[in-house]
């Protein structure tokens, strides 16, 4: 579904990702793990079109999308939940969700999806009139994911969904990720520092170091890989 071929990108004179090639098939959960500053977030921002691609190709269902405007990429079914959630603090919870459905014109479908995210996260329905900035970190993560789902994406890019959350909440968020993948067939590209958790839910994974992919394999293979174990799983 999504294929990156020798992608290079960065900010100013610094090349944050040097050569990334990876493939994500429809219906998969694929994770990208790596240390701080390895280029994980830049990879996602490049896919979403916010960081310009300096070389290589990004193909979505065979169509080159590098250089496309960010709104066209969302229109093609690719939504991102960025690191740090980026809730609009002065918009209400409901308005934040409305913005997720900004590009959609099918009112009935939007209404159904709103009900769907409210069943996933009932707390959001209770808080729908509150400002986004008044939510706790966990609630903001739920809102950020729900907002992305309101675009009804075929593929969801998740950047550090577990960051700063209590263990119980992390568990809940990962359960939802698996459920979305299983029940809705949403393809998921998950960027995580919490490698243990990510490798457990992912079908396959890539390990990123200094802007390059160094290892790839199934979740289980990577979890068993010595290098991955010592560097990312603390074993």
């Amino acid at each position: 579904m999504l294929r990156l071929e020798h992608v290079r990108a960065g900010y100013g004179n610094i090349l944050a990702i040097k050569d990334i090639s990876l493939v994500i098939s429809e219906g998969e959960i694929v994770t990208l793990i790596g240390a701080n500053g390895a280029g994980k977030s830049t990879t996602l921002m490049t896919i979403s079109g916010l960081v310009p691609c300096r070389g290589g190709k990004i193909l979505l269902n065979g169509r080159e999308i590098q250089g496309e405007a960010p709104d066209n990429i969302v229109r093609l079914g690719l939504s991102q939940v960025p690191e740090g959630r980026h809730i609009f603090p002065l918009l209400t919870v409901k308005e934040n969700l409305d913005m997720g459905a900004f590009l959609r014109r099918d009112k009935d479908g939007v209404k159904r999806d709103l009900e769907f995210v409210y069943t996933l996260f009932p707390i959001l329905e209770k808080r729908q009139r509150q400002h986004g900035g008044a939510l706790s970190g966990g609630e903001q993560q739920m809102l950020a994911m729900s907002r992305a789902l309101m675009a009804r994406p075929k593929m969801l890019l998740l950047d550090e969904p577990s960051m700063g959350l209590a263990p119980l909440l992390i568990k809940q968020i990962f359960a939802i990720i698996e459920r979305l993948n299983r029940e809705r067939g949403t393809t998921i590209f998950l960027v995580e520092q919490n490698a243990r958790k990510a490798l457990r839910v992912a079908h396959r994974g890539y390990v990123l170091e200094n802007g390059e992919i160094i290892v790839t394999g199934t979740g289980r293979e990577l979890a068993a890989n010595e290098k991955v174990q010592s560097a990312y799983l603390g074993m």
């Binding site: 079109g49 405007a69 991102q80 980026h86 002065l90 992305a148 675009a151």
Partner: peptide, 22 residues
Amino acid sequence: TIGKAMRATAQDSAMALLLGIN
């Protein structure tokens, strides 16, 4: 919708882009 998009853009324009707001 356009009013909400204006407020969203004012608060966090990068996030507005990620949601497909032009």
